[in-house]
Simulated assay, not measured.
Amino acid sequence: MWSALPESDRSAEFGDLLRHWRAVRRVSQLGLASAAGSTPRYVSFVETGRARPSREMVLRLARALDVPLRERNGLLLAAGFAPLYPVAPLGSTQLGRVETALTSMLEQHEPYPAVVLDRGWNVLRANRGAGLLFARLFAPDQMPGAVNVLRLMLEPGPVRSSVLNWDVVAPALLERAAREAVGGVFDRATADLVEQLRARPDIAAVMAGAAAGVPTVPVVDVRFAVDDVTLDLFSVVSTIGTPIDVTAQELRVEAFFPADDATRAAWRRIGPGVEV
C-alpha cells in the first residue's frame, strides 16, 4: 500500500501533520528529536499542541522527516508562519535556468521521445519525437490537449491498445508511480487517481498476476505497435538536484531509448524527416 498526503490547508493542525509525517517515515518521537536536535518531550508537546514550534524548529523537523517542499509550506502555514518555498510556474522568469535546461534535454534527446512530467504524471513539455509518437498512437484522432501518462497507459484507449505487453507494463507503471512520488508519498490527487486505476478489474487482475512472478530483465520495455512496426522502448527518468522551488522539485524528465537495433531502425519509418 502507499501513503497519501493529508489535505494541507490553513486549518490543519501542525501537530496532526507532524504526526502524519512521522508515521509515513516510520520514525519515533525519539528518532525525530535526535535528527532535529530536540527532545522527545518537546516533540510530544508539539504534536499534542502543548508547545508551539518556532519557524526554525518547523523547518528542522521538516528536514529531518524529508518532507517535500510543497508540504513544508503546508507545515509552516499550519504553525502560523508564511510559506518559505516559492511555487513558480514553469515558463516563468524565476525558473529560467530550469526551463533552459529542460529545453536542452528535450532537444538533445531528438529524434527519440522525451517528455517533462509534473508529480501527477501530466505532460508539461514534449519534444518532437514524443509528439510524433503520440500523434501516431492517437491517429486518426487528434491528440488531446491535456495528457496524463497514467491514464493514457492504463485506461482503455488508443495508447493502451497499442501496448503489446500491457499486462507487464501496467503493474510496473503503478509500482513506478509509487517509487517516483515526490518524497515517496503521493499527493492527494495522484493518490486518488492511482486508487481509481487499481480498482479497475482488468488492472487488479494483472496486478495479482504480477505479484506471483519476479522479472528477470533489468528494465521493463514498453512494446508499442505503431502502424506496421513494433517499437521496444525503455525510459530513463531525471530530476532536478537540490531544488528550492516547489515546481522544480516536482518536475522530472522521462527520456525514451530504443531497446534494440530493430527499434532504432524502425524509428526511421515512423515519420518523414526523422534522422537517427
Score class of each variant (00 low, 15 high):
Leu174Val: 09
Ser162Gly: 12
Ala265Cys: 08
Phe81Arg: 09
Ala178Asp: 15
Ala177Tyr: 13
Glu47Ser: 01
Leu65Gln: 03
Pro6Lys: 05
Val123Arg: 02
Pro215Met: 15
Pro40Lys: 01
Leu75Pro: 05
Val24Tyr: 04
Arg151Val: 07
Pro201Ile: 00
Ile244Met: 13
Arg176Pro: 11
Leu95Tyr: 11
Arg136His: 11
Arg160Ala: 12
Asp187Pro: 12
Thr100Pro: 04
Asn127Met: 00
Phe224Glu: 12
Leu154Ser: 03
Val217Thr: 14
Ser161Pro: 12
Gly241Arg: 09
Pro243Phe: 00
Leu59Met: 14
Val87Ser: 14
Asp9Ile: 07
Met57Ile: 03
Arg198Leu: 08
Trp121Ile: 01
Ser44Ile: 00
Ser161Gly: 10
Pro243Met: 06
Pro40Asp: 04
Val236Trp: 05
Ala51Phe: 01
Arg264Val: 02
Met1Thr: 12
Arg70Leu: 10
Asp16Lys: 09
Thr103His: 12
Ala130His: 04
Thr216Trp: 10
Arg264Tyr: 03
Ala191Asn: 04
Thr242Leu: 09
Asp16Glu: 11
Ala259Met: 03
Arg97Met: 14
Val67Tyr: 01
Thr100Ser: 13
Ala178Glu: 10
Val87Ala: 15
Asn127Val: 00
Arg136Trp: 06
Ile203Tyr: 06
Pro86Trp: 11
Val24Met: 06
Gly129His: 06
Arg55Lys: 13
Arg41Cys: 03
Met153Ile: 08
Pro215Cys: 15
Thr39Val: 05
Asp221Gln: 10
Asp227Gly: 09
Ala88Phe: 13
Ser11Ala: 15
Arg136Thr: 08
Arg26Ile: 02
Pro144Leu: 06
Arg50Glu: 08
Val220Glu: 11
Ala262Phe: 01
Glu56Cys: 12
Trp21Lys: 02
Asp227Leu: 10
Val159Glu: 07
Asp260Leu: 05
Glu7Ile: 14
Val123Met: 03
Glu13Met: 14
Asn127Thr: 00
Ala212Trp: 07
Phe45Trp: 10
Trp21Val: 01
Ser238Phe: 11
Tyr112Gly: 04
Ser28Arg: 02
Pro156Gln: 02
Ala139Trp: 14
Ser3Trp: 14
Phe224Asn: 15
Ala172Ser: 15
Glu254Cys: 02
Val237Lys: 14
Val27Gln: 04
Thr103Asp: 15
Val169Asn: 11
Thr48Asn: 09
Val226Gln: 13
Gln108Tyr: 08
Ala126Asp: 05
Val58Asn: 04
Val229Asn: 13
Pro140Thr: 07
Val67Thr: 00
Ser54Ala: 09
Ser38Lys: 05
Ser92Ala: 08
Pro113Ala: 07
Val214Arg: 15
Val168Asp: 14
Gly49Ser: 11
Asp261Met: 12
Ser28Tyr: 00
Arg10Cys: 14
Val236Asp: 07
Asn127Tyr: 01
Ala36Met: 01
Thr39Phe: 04
Val115Glu: 00
Thr263Met: 02
Thr190Tyr: 06
Arg128Ile: 03
Val237Ser: 13
Val115Ala: 03
Val220Asp: 13
Ala172Asn: 15
Glu99Thr: 15
Pro218Ser: 08
Ala248Cys: 05
Asn122Ser: 08
Ile240Cys: 08
Val149Ile: 09
Arg10Lys: 14
Thr263Leu: 04
Val115Lys: 12
Leu251Pro: 06
Ser34Val: 13
Ala172Cys: 11
Glu250Pro: 04
Pro218Tyr: 08
Asp260Tyr: 07
Met57Asn: 07
Met207Thr: 02
Asp202Pro: 07
Leu5His: 11
Leu30Phe: 06
